[in-house]
């Protein structure tokens, strides 16, 4: 028998840059007088996974939430600079925040299914958009659950409460709920930190598949996770004024094997602080 080489997805090479899906330019976010992040210039490449890493309090989540104007909801929050989505500043006057959040979806740290059935959880967003026809909703629910690798587990219990699923399944339900809105970018804020190791690996595997159709930005405390799943890594640190800033950005394989900045090296090798 001939030995066969089945290399489907080489992970050895550094990820290549694709078209810019999003980009921050001189982005600073203030909470009242406190500057949480300062002057961040960060590219987000299409169909790639970008991991944002850094010590606690360096502004990772603030940066992530600035990418779909989630910070608008925080009283006293203010933004300087630009966040471009397909070249357009999402903070420009006249931008439709609801549409931006549809195009840039979000998955949170703790799975937060709504207290309703699996089906209704996924159909929730499309219904808000005015979709009422059952056949259309059925199609969206199935497609979204399939994309979130959950369909096989729940197709017979779509009427069951989403809260009854296991933690990992609940998180995949939340991902399906985000996908149902047909977003272009999915933001994930430590999506596995409340999950057990097996559920974590399932989500990581899912992220790898999702990037074929979506652009993904993930904040993670787990550096090994960033190394496993991301194509690009951004390392943030805190300045003396406690404002988070971008120390280094690059292909993940380079950041983790040969970082350019000593600060990055110290952080990823666990010698920080």
């Amino acid at each position: 028998m001939q030995p066969q080489l089945n290399i489907t997805e080489p992970t050895r090479a550094a990820a290549t840059a694709t078209d810019l899906k999003m980009e921050t330019r001189g982005l600073s976010v203030y909470y009242k007088n406190f500057r949480a992040i300062k002057e961040i210039n960060l590219p987000v490449y299409e169909n790639r996974v970008l991991a944002i890493i850094g010590p606690s309090g360096c502004g990772k989540s603030t940066l992530l939430r600035a990418l779909n104007r989630m910070n608008d909801l925080v009283p006293g929050a203010r933004v300087e600079g630009e966040v471009l989505l397909d070249g357009e500043n999402i903070y420009a006057p006249g931008q439709d925040v609801v549409d931006i959040r549809r195009r840039v979806g979000m998955v949170f740290q703790r799975p937060n299914p709504f207290p309703m059935s699996v089906y209704d959880n996924v159909a929730f967003g499309p219904r808000l958009l005015g979709i009422r026809k059952k056949s259309v909703l059925d199609e969206i629910v199935e497609r979204s659950l399939r994309a979130a690798a959950l369909w096989e587990h729940v197709q017979d219990k779509l009427g069951q409460s989403g809260m009854a699923l296991s933690g990992g399944q609940q998180q995949r339900l939340c991902i399906a709920r985000a996908i149902a809105m047909e977003p272009e970018v999915i933001l994930m804020d430590e999506p596995t930190s409340a999950l057990d190791p097996m559920a974590t690996l399932t989500i990581e595997d899912l992220i790898q598949r999702l990037k074929e159709n979506f652009t993904i930005v993930i904040v993670t405390h787990n550096m090994q996770q960033a190394a496993r799943i991301s194509d690009f890594t951004a390392f943030l640190s805190m300045d003396e004024d406690r404002a988070g800033y971008l120390v280094e950005f690059g292909p993940t394989v380079e950041v983790f094997t040969n970082p350019k900045e000593k600060l990055t090296e110290d952080y990823i090798t666990g010698r920080f602080g």
Partner: peptide, 9 residues
């Protein structure tokens, strides 16, 4: 120990 960067090299 999950070494990285210089440690891993």
């Amino acid at each position: 120990q999950q070494p990285l960067a210089h440690d891993l090299r």
